[in-house]
Design a protein around this nucleic acid. Structure first.
Lengths: 234, 234
DNA sequence: TCAAAAGTGTTAAAAATACACCCATGG
DNA sequence: CCATGGGTGTATTTTTAACACTTTTGA
């Protein structure tokens, strides 16, 4: 046992390392995920998370951003490492360790559609996603859990909205991420009390009811407050 | 760009994957970490996290447990994946992606000492740890942060204590992990109100003052409560 | 008898929750 | 004029925070 270990340490086995990205979006009612359809075996024709192999000279984060752009056209989005999946057999061809990431993209971005028409890519409501290739179901489930936990103490929800949004949109987003309804008045009270939203002089356009005021997330102020010991908590 | 990506996907580069473990312990006053001294280059003589290469046929968790036992003699401890570090250049010899774990071990366990005499291993107060090999300082810092965050909403603190402990020990532990003092009466009130501690009919022995009552963490009850929607929060 | 840590309740402030109606707009 | 969602305040309950003295024990 010990000598085996010593030998293993001298000639470390080489494996493939890939990155896979769970890309979340959110329309007015539901949390969505961006999937691509596999064009080659294994799992040909099955939906899967966008991702690919890490190159020899790039960081893991860089690999995730690169693959995301190549496969979905998305760039500049919020991206964070999620968990690393490495069970032998998770890829039937060979041992592959996958460093999973999750990303948050405003659904309104039409860039996505444009880039995804060529490759077979589509948004799915996460609650109704098809069975995925490899262990991607497990990765998606892990990402949902992480999002649910993280959204409460870091203002990442704003990454899923367009730059200017209504308080109702924000509330829908939190309800989708947390999976539970929230009280309108209490939600507005709390979120405004944090002083991180800038009230704009604009309102919604083209709605068949009273137009809602638009707000903007104040990143600068968030950084200031964070540095002086403030804690975001919803 | 696109064709490069295609080629990369066909012949994925192979890298080495290792696991590194931050092992936390806690004596009466301070949070500690278990380090081993490197016997070979690079960083010969420097302190480092226990760890080693993942074998071709084991899960990442299994690799972490195996290395932990081989290098420190610890087994059966709490162990959880932390983060994956993969910057090119973090190992001067070749590209190595490190899946970092953190473990919690009751310091009272003398198994540690026994196993560590041969190899050069020692506990250090995390606040006063020496500079570590590779990017292990960064890994250690990440682990401290994670512990601070996690200890508040999951009862993992108990993993750092012996099976039977006093409330003061528990409080010291939380103070060490959170890095701030806590009020004695409020702490006891809160922790007892959760109903997860079993009050034993025993007290401390051989102390030069009034002996404190001993308690035990009730894992079974914790599982029950968790399943019925209860949320641990300190 | 002294030193050292164990143990124990109350009060005030702050935060969270529950809850219902009028308003503006476009169709 | 009506359907749709926008917007607003108060009272109650719950949670948190602050705070000091008596008890037990061994040396």
């Amino acid at each position: 046992m010990y000598t085996t270990s010593r030998r293993a340490r001298k000639t470390p086995p080489r494996l493939s390392v890939c990155v896979d990205c769970v890309v979340f979006g959110c329309d007015e009612a539901e949390l969505q995920a961006l999937l691509i359809r596999r064009a080659a075996p294994p799992y040909e024709g099955r939906w899967a998370l966008p991702g690919g192999f890490v190159r020899g000279d790039e960081t893991l984060d860089a690999a995730a951003r690169r693959e995301l752009e190549e496969e979905t056209g998305l760039r500049g989005v919020f991206l964070e490492q999620l968990y690393t999946f490495g069970a032998p057999g998770r890829d039937p061809r060979r041992r592959v360790v996958s460093v999973a990431y999750y990303a948050l993209a405003p659904l309104s971005d039409h860039r996505v559609r444009a880039a995804t028409d060529a490759r077979d890519a589509a948004w799915f409501a996460v609650a109704a996603a098809p069975p995925l290739a490899f262990d991607h179901d497990e990765i998606l489930a892990t990402a949902r859990q992480r999002l649910r936990g993280k959204v409460r103490y870091q203002p990442i929800g704003f990454e899923l909205l367009p730059p200017r949004f209504t308080l109702t949109q924000l509330q829908r987003l939190y309800e989708a991420a947390l999976g539970q309804p929230l009280d309108k008045r209490n939600f507005r009270k709390k979120v405004l009390a944090m002083g991180l939203l800038e009230e704009l002089d604009e309102t919604q356009q083209d709605v068949a009811h009273r137009a809602a005021r638009l707000y903007r997330f104040d990143r600068k102020r968030y950084r200031q407050l964070t540095n002086s010991g403030f804690n975001f908590e919803l």
